[in-house]
Structures are given as C-alpha cells and as structure tokens.
Simulated scan of single mutants.
Amino acid sequence: MIGILGIVVIFIMVFGGYILAGGKLGIILKSLPFEMMMIGGAAAGAFMISNDMAGVKHTLKDIGKVFKGPKWKPEDYRDLLCLLFALIRLARQNPVAIEQHIEGPENSDIFSRYPKILADKEAVSLICDTIRSASMNYDDPHQVEEVLEKRMEANMHHAMHSSHALQTVADGLPALGIVAAVLGVIKTMGSIDQPPEVLGKMIGGALVGTFLGVFLAYGLVGPFAAKVKTVVEEDGHFYQLIREVLVANLHNHVAAICIEVGRQNTPSHMRPGYSELEEALKAAKQDAA
C-alpha cells in the first residue's frame, strides 16, 4: 500500500508543481509515447541482454515485493520458534522418531501445523538438513555453522539479483534519456528553416527525453531497486533465525534456551514478546499431546 502511495505522491508533486508553475502538459503528452518507446524500449532491451531468462522472470516477480512488502510477518516468526521447539524437543526425547519428520516434512504432523512455513522449500530444507546434521553426531558444531553461513550467503546473493538488475537499469536510464533528447535535437536541426514557435515546440519535445530518463531512474526504477533490496534483507532474518536456533541446539543447550536465543535474535519489530511466546509454546505442547 505504501508503495502505491509513494508513486502517487511522486506524480502529484512533480507534475503538480510543473502545472502550478505555469507549465503546459500538452507538449509532454504529445512527445511522451515516442520518448517512452525509445527510452523504455532501449532499457528493456538492455535488461534482457544483461540477464538470462531465469533472471528476467525472477526480477519481474520480485517487483511485486515493492507493493506486498516482506513475506514473513511477526506471527510467522512466532510460529517458526514454536516449530523449532517442537522439533528440537522431539529430537532430544526420541532421536528415531524425528527421522520421519525431517525425511518427509510434507507428511509431518508437526510441519503441517504451520502451512506457510511448510510451503517455503528453502526454510524446510534448511531446518531438515541442519537437524539431520545434528543426528550425524558432528564433533564440531562450528563446522555446521560455517556450512549454514555459506549456504545463506549464496541464497542471499541469488535473492539480491533482482535489486542489482533494477539498479543497473536505473543507472542507465538518464543516459538513454540523453540519447532520446539528442535524436530530438537532430530532428529539430533537420527543420531549422521552420519558424521559432515550431522550433521551440520541437526542442521542448526533445527535452522531454532527458526529463523522462532522469524521472524514471530516480523517481521509479531506482526506488523500486532499493525497496526490493530492503524486503529481501528483511526476509533474510527469517532464515538467520533458523540458523541461530539450530546452532544453539548443536551446542546442546536446553530447548528453551535455544528458542530464547532465537527470540533475542529476531528483529525488534518482528520479535514476539516473552509471555506471548510462552503461551504459543504451551498451546503447541497441548496440540502435540
């Protein structure tokens, strides 16, 4: 919602200020389709050249994050802590019984209590792989932690591709605007024998290209890239929480301490309160019983 509001504010402030200053939209509207074709088309072509098909699809999909915001909400962090508590508790009580849950999470009654987490393949894979590692009796928990860190860095690098791709387009838009403006000037110079009022409109139309390139770069595409980056980083905390709790488990801390480590490492605006989490854990225990 705030993304849509921001776009509306940009257009009202820019074009509203132009109109209030005495500017006329006629010349902009007349030139806009052709300038947008040149600038937008060149930007789209450059985007396709610099990315493979998977990268193009990934970026187009991630644009929705500008308007949807982070995937994981405060209640999801609470549910994740409850899920990890149930799994750690079962692994400590019955190491054999935990195997059916980590080998077939889609059929697990523990995972099925949290369908949103179960639907995220990376979260489920991260949980199951790490618990499986714990069952292999690793002598050095730091080794598992290092593997998890590298895995999460690789995932973050992949997730950031959309932001980098959009920022590259934003960086190129002002130059493409200049290209369109130069073409407009060339067109004007070919009509140099026309009267001043005609030449003035032609030069104004050429300058629309420069305006449009800068406006799109710093008013829309650049902020889109920044927002996608922010959302990806925000969602990354969810997977970091998995690592913190399960690494604490590898150090043989009691289950309650492992969960508290995770709660303390949750971002403050997403962190469940201590009492709230206690109630959720009690409810999870009752459901398991």
Rank of each mutant, 00 (worst) to 15 (best):
I63F: 09
Q264N: 05
A97R: 13
K282P: 06
V185C: 03
A180Q: 03
D193P: 04
A255W: 00
M38Y: 10
G213I: 01
V96A: 10
S135D: 09
R89Q: 00
H142F: 15
R78T: 09
S162L: 08
A226R: 10
M189F: 08
G55V: 07
N51S: 04
D79A: 09
G64V: 12
V231L: 00
G45C: 00
I4A: 11
I102Q: 02
S112I: 13
L212A: 04
V124K: 00
Q264L: 15
A44R: 14
G172C: 05
G23T: 01
L216R: 06
L20C: 00
V231I: 03
I19W: 14
G64Q: 12
V179I: 09
Y114T: 08
I19Q: 13
Q194R: 00
L176Y: 01
V124C: 08
A91E: 10
S163E: 08
L90V: 05
K68D: 12
E233W: 11
K187S: 11
P141G: 08
V9Q: 07
G213C: 06
T266W: 07
K71Q: 11
G205W: 02
I63E: 06
E149R: 15
A86W: 07
C258Q: 03
I88N: 02
K187V: 13
A225Q: 02
G209S: 00
A248M: 13
M37N: 10
E145A: 14
M13R: 13
L80C: 03
V231G: 02
R271Q: 03
H164G: 11
I186Q: 02
A289P: 13
I49K: 09
I186S: 00
N249W: 12
C82K: 01
G273R: 07
F238S: 02
L246T: 11
H58R: 13
H142K: 15
A21Y: 02
S268R: 13
I131G: 09
A42C: 11
A217W: 01
G200T: 03
H161V: 14
L5M: 14
I131L: 15
A255E: 00
M36H: 08
N249Q: 11
A21Q: 04
R263W: 01
M53C: 11
H58V: 06
D120F: 07
E233R: 12
T230V: 15
A225M: 05
V247K: 07
Y114W: 05
V228T: 00
G172H: 01
V144W: 10
F47M: 07
I2C: 13
P223Q: 04
E279W: 08
A288G: 13
L250I: 10
L277S: 03
E145F: 11
I4Y: 10
K65C: 03
F224E: 03
A119Q: 08
S275T: 15
G190N: 10
P267R: 05
N265A: 15
L176I: 05
R92Q: 06
N252W: 14
L81K: 01
K150L: 15
L220K: 06
K57R: 15
N137T: 09
G222C: 08
A181P: 02
K201F: 02
A42E: 08
I4P: 07
N107Q: 15
K229T: 02
L250S: 07
L126Y: 09
K282E: 06
L173F: 11
Y138C: 12
